[in-house]
């Protein structure tokens, strides 16, 4: 089993016993294709880009050991993957999404009619159900029956009616309460009346903060999410800036020493 020889003994045992049958066929296949095992095994390393590919067996061997140390997990995966695949890709039978209203990759809107007009709520329900199904059991895409349903055919008012109204009520109510309390608070502290506050820049800013706050922070978790978002947006910048910062820090170190 030349294929497994560089693995540490523990994994060697489990791997070869697990993948015994299929690797046999695998080996014959590769031999027939006249590809050397060494080349196959080291396909994962790509450090040899600048070197002639035929002449680097020694390098490959070294690399192999290196790679073994650094990402052993990956290698194992590769081998197991090979074993599990078998030789040819056969389509396994799996149940696909079925609904009498789902016809040729689209929702048959005629079947959604209620009192002469399309019942969009039902369409949304049906599509949600389909997506959930697909999330749980992903399906092969097909050229013969492409999915043509596009959620943009559902008119905007159907969405608004369904989602926006309850949410909007909550937000408007909250904004009104906060706004009233703030106006009261400012008035009681400074004696500036509600009408005068409207003409005041500081109060306008407060109002703006209150409204955007209500919009952005709808639940307590939102604060965490926003923080994370901020970190995330600057993370890549930091990674890129590293080159230039390092310059400064080494410069500083050199000055010290």
């Amino acid at each position: 089993m030349a294929l497994f020889s560089p693995s540490p003994p523990t994994t060697l045992f489990t791997l070869s016993s697990k993948a015994h049958l299929s690797t046999k066929t695998q080996l014959t296949l590769f031999l027939r294709k006249s590809q050397s095992l060494v080349l196959l095994r080291s396909a994962g390393d790509n450090g040899a880009g600048s070197v002639g590919s035929a002449s680097v067996v020694e390098e490959k061997l070294e690399k192999k050991e290196e790679a073994q140390k650094s990402n052993l997990g990956l290698k194992e995966e590769e081998e197991q993957g090979l074993g599990a695949n078998g030789v040819s890709l056969k389509g396994e039978a799996s149940s696909s999404f079925k609904d009498p209203r789902w016809v040729k990759g689209n929702w048959d809107l005629k079947q959604f009619e209620k009192n002469g007009s399309t019942d969009w709520d039902a369409v949304i329900d049906a599509e949600a159900r389909r997506r959930k199904w697909l999330q749980e059991t992903p399906e092969a895409s097909s050229n013969d029956e492409p999915v043509v349903f596009d959620s943009s055919i559902i008119p905007w008012w159907a969405w608004i009616k369904r989602y926006h109204l309850p949410e909007a009520e909550l937000l408007n109510g909250r904004a009104a309460m906060i706004g009233f309390f703030m106006a009261y608070f400012v008035d009681s502290l400074t004696g500036v009346g509600l009408v005068d506050q409207m003409g005041n820049f500081f109060c306008k800013t407060l109002l703006f903060i209150a409204v955007s706050g209500v919009l952005l922070i709808r639940k307590n978790e939102d604060i965490e999410t926003l923080k994370k978002l901020l970190d995330e947006t600057t993370f890549y910048d930091k990674q890129w800036q590293a080159t230039w910062q390092e310059d400064d820090s080494t410069g500083a170190k050199k000055n010290k020493t």
Binding site: L40, N46, E77, L89, G91, A140
Partner: peptide
Amino acid sequence: ATRLRARDKIEGGKIIRVEAH
């Protein structure tokens, strides 16, 4: 999962090489 999603289009294919980069 990728193989499954492309199942119909690559059916009957033979794996000739596996790579990881």
